[in-house]
């Protein structure tokens, strides 16, 4: 009976955590669209959205209403089921990754300590890689099933780009794994106490990982899949209403998750020098982590509105001929370093 009670409490705790995380993810993604426009406006010396609510703060809400009330159009020659399924698959994959991220240490305001991580699986970082590599299906299926050549071009571009950059991404993660000696994100975050962040040991690895995240999120300067000057709208040309909304929204979720992974792998996760993540009943950890995440989301936006888009062959050259050799070099250097200093 006691075991049953304990299990129920655990299931309840995890369910609440999942729901809260889901809401936070959606909220951050929604307000990233607002943030993006404000940052763009700031960089281009404009005002940005300022009509809906104070400072335009209700703009994401207005956008949502607009997406839901638009006509849901479907091309005649589309593969019906796949066309409907694709945006959902994209959104689903985007939301799944947050399960293994350690958002903080423990909450102590409840009678029993609550771990701020949905699942501490011992291959956490590989789980993230797995879902990143599945993200491409939503784009590919959507682009193909629309039966439109521009959509297909976008889908093909996206898939080859994501596969190419996954290699360099994986290689730069291997360096972190060699350094920390674990695949579990919880342990990786816990090892970087105070100012002992991985960025100091992995500056090149971080740079590579960051560039690859930009490419994996289909963000400018690597947003070839939806390059509107060449491809109309890219893989979601034929989508409208909330299906299009799902695609756009999932991209912001991907961005949020990428920034979280960057913060966790290289910037200490919930650690900050002089700040105990256990303060405020354990809420200090998430606050620190979110501060880092928001900073990186800002950097993503900053890059988008500053750097022009690459040409497709340049993108491939960069991925295969610069990033992968550099990542292998970084891996070798890390291996040598681990061998020299840790044994």
């Amino acid at each position: 009976m006691l075991i049953l009670l304990f299990d129920t409490a655990l299931i309840l705790e995890k369910s609440i955590l999942v729901i809260v995380l889901f809401l936070i993810t959606l909220g951050v993604a929604a307000y990233s669209t607002y943030g993006e426009r404000k940052v763009a406006a700031f960089i281009q010396d404009r005002l940005g959205p300022n009509r809906a609510g104070p400072f335009g703060l209700l703009q994401p809400l207005a956008d949502g209403v607009k997406f839901f009330t638009k006509e849901d159009f479907m091309p005649n020659a589309a593969e019906r089921w796949l066309y409907i399924l694709a945006p959902g698959a994209f959104m689903f994959v985007a939301c799944m990754t947050s399960a293994v991220i350690p958002w903080g240490t423990q909450l102590t305001i409840f009678p029993r300590p609550v771990d701020l991580q949905v699942a501490d699986i011992n291959i956490g970082i590989l789980y993230v890689m797995g879902f990143t590599s599945l993200g491409v299906y939503g784009i590919m299926i959507g682009g193909w099933s629309s039966n439109n050549k521009y959509s297909l071009y976008g889908a093909i571009r996206a898939s080859s780009q994501m596969i190419s950059y996954e290699l360099a991404m994986g290689l730069s993660i291997i360096a972190v794994v060699m350094l920390t000696g674990t695949l579990s994100l919880k342990e990786i975050a816990a090892q970087q106490t105070g100012f002992n962040w991985n960025i100091w040991y992995q500056p090149l690895g971080f740079l590579l990982f960051f560039i690859c995240s930009l490419a994996e999120c289909n963000r400018a300067p690597f947003d070839m899949a939806e390059c509107e000057t060449e491809l109309v709208g890219g893989y979601h040309t034929e989508y409208s209403s909330m299906k299009l909304g799902f695609y756009l929204f999932a991209e912001y979720i991907n961005m949020f998750i990428s920034c979280t992974i960057i913060a966790t792998l290289y910037f200490g996760g919930y650690n900050f020098p002089g700040v105990d993540p256990g303060w405020l009943g354990g809420f200090m950890g998430p606050i620190v982590l979110f501060a880092k995440i928001f900073f990186f989301i800002f950097v993503f936006m900053w890059i988008r509105w500053t750097i022009p888009r690459f040409r497709y062959d340049q993108l491939m050259h960069l991925g295969w001929k610069s990033l992968i050799p550099l990542a292998i070099l970084n891996m070798l250097l890390t291996g040598a370093g681990v061998l020299l200093f840790e044994n």
Binding site: M129, S159, E166
Partner: peptide, 14 residues
Amino acid sequence: IIVYAGAIMVLFLF
């Protein structure tokens, strides 16, 4: 998942 579903099948689809 990473190798088969994430890479090889993507190439097939491609």
